[in-house]
Each structure stands twice: as structure tokens, then as C-alpha cells.
Amino acid sequence: MKMKVLPAEKRPNRRAMIGIVCVLIFLILITLYIVGASMNELLFEPDFSQKLLPPTMKHPFGTDFLGRDMFARTIKGLSLSMFIGATASGAAAVIALIVGIVAALGKTWLDHFLNWVIDLTMGIPHTVLLILIAIATGRGITGLIIGISLTHWTGIARIIRGEVLQIRSRRYITASRKLGKSRLWVAVRHILPHMIPQFFIGLVLQFPHAIMHESGLTFLGYGMPPETPAIGIILSESMRYLSAGMWWLAFFPGAALAIVVLLIDKLGESLKLALDPASAQE
């Protein structure tokens, strides 16, 4: 539709605001990840002359019992968490997409079976299942990624299955079938494109969960090896020193993790808002 465009108002509009917020968060997270991933390991080498120092200008987050700089370790840990979170929630979302579409398009028994699997997975306490899978697949980063992706796909799968069922009953799907198109053609052409926004929103919203579980599992000792600079390990090590009043060992890494999780969650919510047609014109 052609429109006569009247002069834009001075006040920035809501959609632009959401866009700016998304880009900004994305840039912060990417920068954090790159800085952490490319960090020189010498920056958090043990230095026994600098043990258990409270925050100073030189060590903004203080140092730990081996004299390692906590700021550098936190950044490194966050980037590791983000890598695991992204990989695991990406894998979870892909599983969800496949299962959701197959469940909704396939035979009735298949749908029942997949639904049963979803219920089963959701029925077992998350952490227990996660620990079992992580141990069974050999701990470490691989174990964590497999564990998290195998326990986090159910929520998205359910949403996608529901959407597919709804779209499948639309008139244009029937029309397309009666114009001689095959089930597969209809699925790829008409149904899959509707799922893409759900897929991305689900992926981003699953991201913080994945990170929390990664840290939680590592904290409990079922995750990464103890020499890795992971947030879970940092927190678990700090437990011994908290009673001695060394608050910075837990506070800064914990707060940094919380901030990253909240940022990603905000990114997901903003994406949802921008992609949701009901609020798009406001």
C-alpha cells in the first residue's frame, strides 16, 4: 500500500526503541564473549603473593586463594557459559522444531508417542535428568551440552506442536492440498515459515535457562573439570571462604552471571514484542 508519509515525530517510536535495545544487548554479549574467548590465560595465572585480596583498582573483583584475578576469571567463565548456553539451546530448539513439526504432521500414533516423550521428559525433575545424562555422556563440556539440550527442548516443542496443529486446520492449507500439493510441500512452504519466529524466540528465551543449569551443574560438581574458569566452579570454590568474610569471591561472579542472564532474557522478550503482529503498530 502506498502511503503519504507525514513528517516523522521528534520522539523516537517504540519499534525503533526495541530495535536499538536488541542491537545494544547483542553487541554487549558478543563483545563479552569475544573478550572472554580470546583472553590470554596469563591474566588469571596463580600468583601466591596476591592471595585473597579484596577488590582494588588492580583487581576490581579481588583475587582468590591461589591469587588469581577474579575479574579475568569471571569474564572467561561467562564466555564459556555463553558458548555452552548458545550451543545447547540451539540444539534444543532444533530438536524441538523437528519433533514439533513431525508430531503435528505425522500419524496419530507418532503424535501420541512424541507427546508421551515430552510429558515424560517434563515429568522428571530437570536437574536430576540433567545430571544423569551429563554423567552418562562423559561429563565435561560435551556432557553438559548434550544434557542441557536433551532436557530443554520440550517446552519449545510443545509450543511449536500447538502452533502447527492450529495452522494445519487453516483454510489455505486445505486449499493447497486440493490444488494437488503434497504433505511435504505444504509443510515446507506453508507451515515451516510460520514456525521461524517461534523458533528464534524459544531459542533466545531458553538461553538463560541453559546457562543457569550449566552453572548449577558445575557448582554441584557434575559439570566441568575443577581447573576450568567456569562461573559454577568459581561459586563453588568461594563457598569455603564466604564464612571468612570474603564476599567478593561470590558476589561479583554471581552478579555478573545474573546480569548476563537478565540481558539475554530481555533480548528474548524484545524479539517477541517486535515479531508479535498484535503490538507491532504501537
Binding site: 487453516r170 486440493k178 490444488l179 512452504r189
Partner: peptide, 19 residues
């Protein structure tokens, strides 16, 4: 292809809004 084709009351429901 079905040789009998249906035209329905609400065209906006019979057409994929994303294509």
C-alpha cells in the same frame, strides 16, 4: 489436483498471509 474447487466466504482465510 481436485477437479471440484471450493471458493469460500472469507478469502483472507483461504490465502496464506505470509506469502
Amino acid at each position: 489436483f481436485c477437479p471440484a474447487q471450493l471458493i469460500y466466504q472469507h478469502p483472507e482465510q483461504a490465502i496464506n498471509p505470509r506469502l
